[in-house]
């Protein structure tokens, strides 16, 4: 009996020992080959945009609300042309690389690196850390119209959207920020001696100049200096949903909030005309010394 068992075992071994497809993968290609294909596909999408890409960069998004706009045009030989603010276009290199994730790396210096430069190249940058921005970017997703990227070391949020012909020169316009741009501002700020109800005006401040409304990381929201106090870092944050609405949402930024009497800010009146780009704001707050302030401001789109 034992003998037969041994024979059966041996025959079974002979039959099964040659089963070769144990090693074959469920995929046609190896992981590396598939990864390279993903990179090649991303590259061809990047290159295919005829007018390049408009990039919205939010450095250090956990502590920062500001947004920086760039324009990039990639070619198929690892070169990228960058535009930023009113600087001349600049050519540098990029490459796509598979690390933990597929990555887009701006591997020689261009405008994007100004934000990350530890030698303080932009306002607000700290010596040694810059704005905590990124130029080594993980590709979260990518399609013919948009890329979602995440900074590898500082978690910067970067989205790139396919640009149109008008984006290849002039101001770089981020999509989705209808209010962004320059405004002619006329404002009168009234300082009451004590309360507005008491009615004794101690001083008035007039401001008449051009201000920029800059995109913030919150979709559709821009920041613009509060009356004549932009130098103190005081700003309105203004949000508009779309081009058909006449309602804007106005709040104040954290700097202003922390320097006035808590919870005293309120909007007395506001209106927005999408056709002419005229914003009217009348707001109120009580300062830390208990005196009331009213600001009436007209912003006219340039």
């Amino acid at each position: 009996m034992i003998k037969y068992l041994v024979y059966i075992l041996l025959v079974a071994m002979v039959v099964t020992s040659c089963k070769k497809d144990l090693h074959s993968s469920v995929f046609d290609q190896s992981a590396d080959q598939r990864l390279n294909k993903v990179l090649a596909d991303y590259q061809s999408i990047l290159v295919a945009a005829p007018y390049g890409w408009v990039a919205k960069v939010v450095p250090n998004p956990e502590q920062n609300n500001n947004v920086y706009a760039f324009w990039f045009k990639f070619n198929d030989s690892n070169r990228v042309v960058s535009r930023w603010q009113n600087q001349p276009s600049l050519s540098s290199s990029y490459r796509l690389k598979a690390l933990q994730q597929p990555e887009l790396i701006f591997d020689t210096y261009t405008y994007l690196h100004l934000l990350a430069d530890p030698e303080q190249k932009v306002p607000g940058a700290q010596l040694g850390t810059g704005l905590k921005s990124d130029f080594e970017l993980e590709i979260i997703s990518g399609s013919a119209d948009s890329f979602v990227l995440k900074g590898k070391y500082n978690g910067s949020d970067i989205t790139m959207s396919r640009a149109a012909a008008k984006d290849t020169s002039g101001a770089i316009v981020l999509p989705g920020y209808l209010l962004a741009g320059n405004y002619k501002s006329t404002s009168v700020r009234t300082g009451y001696k004590t309360t507005q109800a008491a009615g004794i005006i101690a001083n008035t401040w007039k401001f008449d100049d051009v201000k920029a409304a800059n995109p913030l990381k919150f979709a559709g929201t821009v920041s613009i200096d509060y009356s004549d106090l932009g130098g103190s870092g005081w700003q309105y944050n203004i949000f508009v949903k779309d081009n058909t609405t006449k309602d804007v949402t106005i709040t104040i930024n954290a700097v202003m909030q922390s320097q006035i009497k808590e919870g005293s800010f309120k909007i007395l009146d506001q209106s927005y005309d999408p056709a002419s780009g005229r914003i009217y704001i009348k707001t109120f707050y009580t300062n830390s010394a208990g005196a009331d302030r009213v600001n009436e401001e007209i912003l006219l789109r340039q």
């Binding site: 540098s92 290199s93 020689t108 210096y109 690196h113 850390t129 810059g130 130029f135 080594e136």
Partner: peptide, 20 residues
């Protein structure tokens, strides 16, 4: 070597690549 490669540097250093 001038193109960015974080693995060449101490990760605690905050650096940017050279201008070409």
């Amino acid at each position: 070597k001038y193109k960015w490669d974080q693995s060449e540097f101490d990760k605690s250093l905050i650096l940017v690549p050279p201008t070409e």
